[in-house]
C-alpha cells in the first residue's frame, strides 16, 4: 500500500475530533472528584453508583426502555411486511411506497414531534407514553424497512418457490423458510431501532411531560442545574450499550449492507 502522509494526518485528526470528546466523557465518569474536570481527580466508580441510585434517572431509564421496546416492535410490525411487499410483491407504485417509508429520515424531527403533539396528545388525548411510542415508531420505520430489505435482497427469491414445490403451502413456506432466512436481518433491524429510539432527543423533547420522561431528556434537564460527573457516568453507560448493539448488528448483517445503496 502506498503511503499518503496528508491523508493519514487528516484521518488521524478526524478520529481525534470525533472520538476525543467522547473519551473525555468516559474518563470523567470514572473520576473521584466532584466536578466535570479533566484530567479526572482520582479513580472511582462512585458516580456510576450515584447515577443508578437516583430515582429520576432510573425512572427515566424505565420509560426509555419501555418506549424503545414498544416503538421497535411497532416499527418492525409495519416495516417488515412493507419491506417484503416492496421487494417481493408486484405492488403498483412500490418505488413511491419505498420512498415514503424512508421519508422520516428527511423530515425534521421537531416538525414530526410538534405535529404528533398537536394531533395525538392535544387532539386525541393519547398519553405521553403512547405518543412517544408512536412517534418513535415513525422514526424507526425507515431503519426497519432498510435493514430487513437489505437481508431480503441477499436471499435467493427462489427459496419460497422451492419450499412450495416441496409441499409447503404459502403460510408454511413463509414461517418455515422466508422468516428464518430473514431472522438475522429482522434482529439487526430491531437492535438498531431500539438504540435509535433509546438515544433520541429532539422528538422526545417535545413529547415528554412531567412524570414521563426519557433518559436522554432527563440528562439534558439534569445538566441545566448540576455539573457533576453523574451525567458522564450515565453517558458512559449509554455509550456502552450503543457500542454493544452496533457490534452485534455488524456481526449479524454488516453495516455496509444497511447503509450502502
Amino acid at each position: 500500500m502506498r503511503r499518503r502522509p496528508l491523508l493519514t494526518a487528516l484521518c488521524a485528526l478526524a478520529y481525534l475530533f470525533m472520538l476525543g470528546p467522547i473519551l473525555l466523557v468516559v474518563a470523567v465518569a470514572f473520576s473521584g472528584g466532584d466536578t466535570i474536570h479533566f484530567p479526572p481527580e482520582g479513580l472511582s466508580l462512585k458516580w456510576f453508583g450515584k447515577a443508578l441510585s437516583q430515582h429520576s434517572f432510573t425512572s427515566a431509564l424505565g420509560t426509555s426502555v419501555l418506549v424503545a421496546t414498544g416503538a421497535t416492535l411497532l416499527a418492525l410490525l409495519v416495516g417488515v411486511p412493507l419491506a417484503l411487499a416492496v421487494q417481493r410483491g408486484r405492488l403498483p407504485g412500490r418505488r413511491v411506497i419505498e420512498a415514503l417509508c424512508l421519508s422520516p429520515i428527511v423530515v425534521p424531527e421537531l416538525v414530526v414531534g410538534l405535529a404528533l403533539y398537536q394531533q395525538l396528545m392535544v387532539g386525541l388525548r393519547v398519553t405521553a407514553l403512547g405518543t412517544l411510542m408512536i412517534g418513535h415508531a415513525v422514526l424507526l420505520i425507515p431503519y426497519a424497512v432498510r435493514v430487513t430489505g437489505a437481508s431480503l435482497a441477499m436471499a435467493d427469491p427462489m427459496l419460497e418457490e422451492a419450499a412450495r414445490g416441496l409441499g409447503a403451502g404459502p403460510v408454511t413456506a413463509f414461517f418455515r423458510v422466508t422468516l428464518p432466512v430473514l431472522a438475522p436481518g429482522i434482529l439487526s433491524a430491531g437492535l438498531l431501532s431500539f438504540i435509535t429510539s433509546f438515544n433520541n432527543v429532539p422528538l422526545s423533547l417535545l413529547l415528554t411531560g412531567p412524570g414521563t420522561t426519557t433518559l436522554p431528556v432527563e440528562m439534558l434537564h439534569y445538566v441545566e442545574f448540576s455539573f457533576d460527573p453523574v451525567v458522564a457516568a450515565v453517558s458512559t453507560l449509554l455509550l456502552a450499550l450503543t457500542v454493544a448493539v452496533a457490534v452485534v448488528t455488524e456481526r449479524l448483517i454488516g453495516f455496509n449492507k444497511v447503509f450502502g445503496r
Binding site: A155, D156, M158, L159, E161, A162, A163, R164, G165, L166, G167, A168, G169, A173, V177, P180, V181, A183
Partner: peptide, 18 residues
C-alpha cells in the same frame, strides 16, 4: 405447486441456508 408432487432442481439450487 405444493399439491403437484413434483421435484424441482433450481438453477440457483435454492437450498435453505438456515
Amino acid at each position: 405447486p405444493e399439491r403437484r408432487n413434483l421435484g424441482m432442481v433450481f438453477q440457483s439450487y435454492a437450498l435453505f441456508p438456515h
